[in-house]
Nucleic acid binder design. Sequence first.
DNA 1: GCCGTTTTCGGCCCGACTGTTTTCAGTCG
Length: 551
Amino acid sequence: MASNAEVERIFVEIGDLLDLLGEQRFKVEAYRRAARTLESLGEPLERIAARGELERIPGIGDALEAKIREYLSTGRLEYLEKLRQQVPPGIRELMRLPGVGPKTARRFWVEIGVEGPLELAQAVEAGRLRGVAGFGERKIEQLRQGLAALGAGVDGGSRRPLLDAWEIAEELRERLRASAPVDELVVAGSLRRSRETVGDLDLLAISREPAKVFASFLALPGLIEVRSKGDTKSTILLAPGIQVDLRVLEPESFGAALQYFTGSKDHNVHLRTLAREKGLKVNEYGVFREEERVAGRTEEEVYAALGLAPIPPEIRENHGEVEAAAAGQVPTLFERSSLRTDLHLHLPLQGEDAALAPWAERALGLGYSELGVVVENDDEAAERIRRLRPTAPTTAGAKTTLRVRFGVEQEGASPLPPPEGAEYILLRPSVGGTPPKTEAPAESLPRFLGHLEAEDPAAVAGRVGWVEWALRDRLPVEVGPRPERTGLDSGSLRSLAARGVRFLPSARSERSRELARIAVSVGLLRRGAVSATQVLLGLPEGTPKKRRART
DNA sequence: GCCGTTTTCGGCCCGACTGTTTTCAGTCG
């Protein structure tokens, strides 16, 4: 079965090939725009095609619709195959080199006669680029380094899972805040939109001393390469192979820059087109009428200047949100600040986090009033809960209280009843299996459908039964920060929400500092346009306090 | 190639940085 990702890749390839062949840029852009749209579609193309609604996808017209249909029905695309015959396969690879776009790649091919990275490397070493117009010493050195990095697989060109990117970004922010005079430092880009994968990091800072900020930035540990440096913007490559952009701005422009660098690109193009129609101009410094800046300090200002209600970052994909904002009908998304609990954390056996105190402190910092420790439902469960219970803090500080709850985790129906002290059950779906029967006696504990993480994408994809399970038994579904391992990406969340499923966000922590990862889980829920009414904020009240002890 | 309550033709977002240039093209986001 053809997946959206396959069609997406095909359109990207067509875009590249047309670009290399010197086709007009708007045609090239049309294929790339369509590819981006497909990436964030959230619904299988085959379903849309079956409804006859392909042309309703923004950026898909007659020609692209016909190509999608051809591929869906035959698994091939004649147009692509013809294009491939015109360009050697290695030429596309050349475009992955930093500083090499379609024009330069084409010159390598036509003028130098190389057909891929290996041949280019040989040509560089043989000095065949010397004296060629447009290739000075620095350009050649840049190529040499780029080729070496390409061979070593550290080109920073690949996307990584949202959570990994988030953790890198958090660490960067901490370091920069400690070492540079910044008044504000935020992450924009696809990370702020909570995209499931993130290519590079976009940092924005407000500072009165940009030079000092850039100096700190260029001295970050783990820096592999400085890709550009200027007065307002610098780009580096960090050791994990991730590219990081930093822009330093004045407060007057911060909202406009945040809006602009959060994207998505297609969302921004839409806004700018709208602005032109209103006689305005939008750039990263503000919204302008003639020379006068009419907005820019905050994002809300920018949207308001265009006659739009504020649009949450997570849904800025040009999938109709701009039209909705113009009509004042932006969906109200779940807010992290309303969350009062995290019911899925595991205490390690040793170390500082084996005790509840550090967890409680972090939880209070996040504004929680409740925290749920989960143990495996086995013969030791009651004993583990009993050991922790006396240390459970009930208050911290003068007013805030934190209630620590205990739950058990099990796969489907357990032969063991819940142990003494357990207040809820986290059910794990089994891999590839059908959902077990889960009779629900009236007095039973609240139950949630936890997620099972799998490294293997096939195992994730093969786990089909649990959706039916959640629907059949009306079980709230846990949403964690690793969609690539659970299969619960924003598209799935959106369709589950539409079918009435409720959600329980968790950080799935095994260390107390990981509680902060709830930001990622909530981001995914928001990207799935999940509203506050569909999220469980804490354990339902009325939980039976006394359980019959097992014997 | 897409798109349209000013258009079915003629537009298509906007700016920073780089390298190699004497005023700019290419790349990138």
